[in-house]
Deep mutational scan, measured.
Amino acid sequence: MSIQHFRVALIPFFAAFCLPVFAHPETLVKVKDAEDQLGARVGYIELDLNSGKILESFRPEERFPMMSTFKVLLCGAVLSRVDAGQEQLGRRIHYSQNDLVEYSPVTEKHLTDGMTVRELCSAAITMSDNTAANLLLTTIGGPKELTAFLHNMGDHVTRLDRWEPELNEAIPNDERDTTMPAAMATTLRKLLTGELLTLASRQQLIDWMEADKVAGPLLRSALPAGWFIADKSGAGERGSRGIIAALGPDGKPSRIVVIYTTGSQATMDERNRQIAEIGASLIKHW
């Protein structure tokens, strides 16, 4: 067993022997301040990774656009098919120029040779490549099948209805392509620590998230040296922004954090800054 596999296998073990965790309302004060600064709703939840206990939450059962955070769930569904012998990570998928959609920095470079399922998941999570996500959605049967996968996990809230990039439209009061912070946090925890996926697939999923290259201005910008984070960000229309993450000190994750916002007129930089400040408060009061 590799060191990384050992780390993920012992996530519940280490967490069980940690000192009790206590909620700190100071972080919620910052979440509410972010709402004021952005002029928009902000949803927040913080779960203990081992027990699933909610440590703090704000608007945990209000719907927010998922945006690209759905790509972690998508690759979880792909990995479940791999575990069941219905898919192979090494299978190569070929596609054409007509398949390319807006923001496809990886797939646009491989029109000639195609990409493997493993490479597509890596591109979808680490670079948020939209064509990679659409190609992977095709392998599982489309958005409705991802929703069905989530329902089978016990998540009857999260739903995907459309493809990239239309799913980022974020129309107010439109339930399409949305989740709730509580539902997303619980589902992410199941994917990373539950028995739904094999140990190898859980490790692969967290490795992809740990290698995320496009979430630097968010929670990662607030992390002290030595902290662990595996995350996936999302951005959408109407001032929408979000991030889902597993993080913790001492090089291992111990909490799940989900943050979503929508309806702001603020710039992307300002949305990023507010999420980073929430992260800084979380870490300060850990």
Rank of each mutant, 00 (worst) to 15 (best):
E169G: 05
L197S: 09
L282V: 05
H285Q: 12
E195D: 11
V157M: 03
D231M: 08
I229Q: 09
K284A: 05
R118Q: 13
F70Y: 13
T187E: 09
P172T: 10
E46V: 14
R159Y: 02
R41N: 12
G76E: 01
I140W: 10
T131A: 03
S281Q: 10
M115C: 02
M153A: 02
L136R: 00
A148I: 14
M209V: 02
T261V: 10
M115S: 05
Q37M: 05
Y44M: 12
A123R: 02
I259H: 01
Y260Q: 06
E164G: 00
I278T: 15
K30W: 11
L197I: 05
R91S: 09
C75T: 11
K32E: 15
V214T: 08
N173W: 13
T116N: 15
A280G: 14
V257G: 04
G263I: 06
L205Y: 04
G194R: 15
S264G: 10
Q37R: 08
L136E: 01
G142R: 09
R118G: 11
L199Q: 12
G39E: 06
H94K: 03
T179C: 01
R92Q: 10
V78A: 12
G39A: 04
E62L: 02
E26W: 15
S104E: 01
R202Y: 03
E61T: 04
C121F: 01
D99S: 04
K190F: 02
A182S: 06
W163G: 06
K30S: 14
L55G: 11
G263V: 12
A84W: 13
Q86R: 10
S128L: 00
T147S: 05
Y95K: 03
W163T: 07
E277F: 03
P25S: 06
L79Q: 05
G52N: 14
Q37C: 02
I171K: 15
E119P: 01
R59C: 07
S254R: 10
V257C: 08
A77N: 04
L282Y: 03
L196I: 11
F64A: 01
R92T: 12
D155P: 01
E46K: 15
A148L: 14
R271K: 09
S264V: 09
K252V: 09
L79V: 11
S201K: 14
N152E: 15
E62A: 02
N130L: 03
P181G: 03
R189F: 09
D269L: 08
S122E: 09
T147W: 04
L135E: 12
R91Q: 15
Q88W: 13
A185L: 08
W208E: 06
T261C: 04
A266C: 07
M115Y: 04
E210M: 14
N134Y: 11
G236F: 04
V106D: 15
R202C: 07
R59K: 14
E102C: 04
A266D: 07
A225F: 12
N98S: 13
H110V: 11
G141W: 06
T193D: 09
L146E: 13
V31S: 04
E195L: 01
I125A: 02
D48V: 03
G141I: 12
I93D: 09
D174N: 13
L197K: 14
G248P: 00
G154I: 08
L146S: 07
G52K: 04
K213I: 09
L282A: 10
V42D: 01
G85Y: 05
L49Y: 11
E26Y: 12
L100Q: 14
L150D: 02
N50R: 06
V42W: 06
L219C: 08
E277K: 11
L146T: 04
G43S: 08
P253G: 06
G39V: 07
H24P: 02
A124C: 12
D113T: 06
L100F: 02
S80F: 15
A34M: 05
L28S: 04
Q86A: 04
I283M: 05
L150Y: 04
Y103E: 03
Y103N: 05
P249V: 06
N98T: 08
L282E: 06
A245H: 00
T187K: 12
T158N: 02
G39R: 04
T261M: 14
Y95L: 09
T27E: 06
Q86K: 04
S240T: 13
T193I: 03
T187H: 15
F64I: 10
A246L: 09
M127F: 12
A280V: 14
D36S: 09
L197W: 04
T186R: 10
P224I: 06
L218R: 06
V157E: 14
L136F: 01
T131C: 06
A200M: 02
A182D: 06
F64N: 01
L282I: 02
A215G: 10
V157C: 03
E56L: 10
R91N: 11
S240Q: 13
D174G: 13
S80R: 13
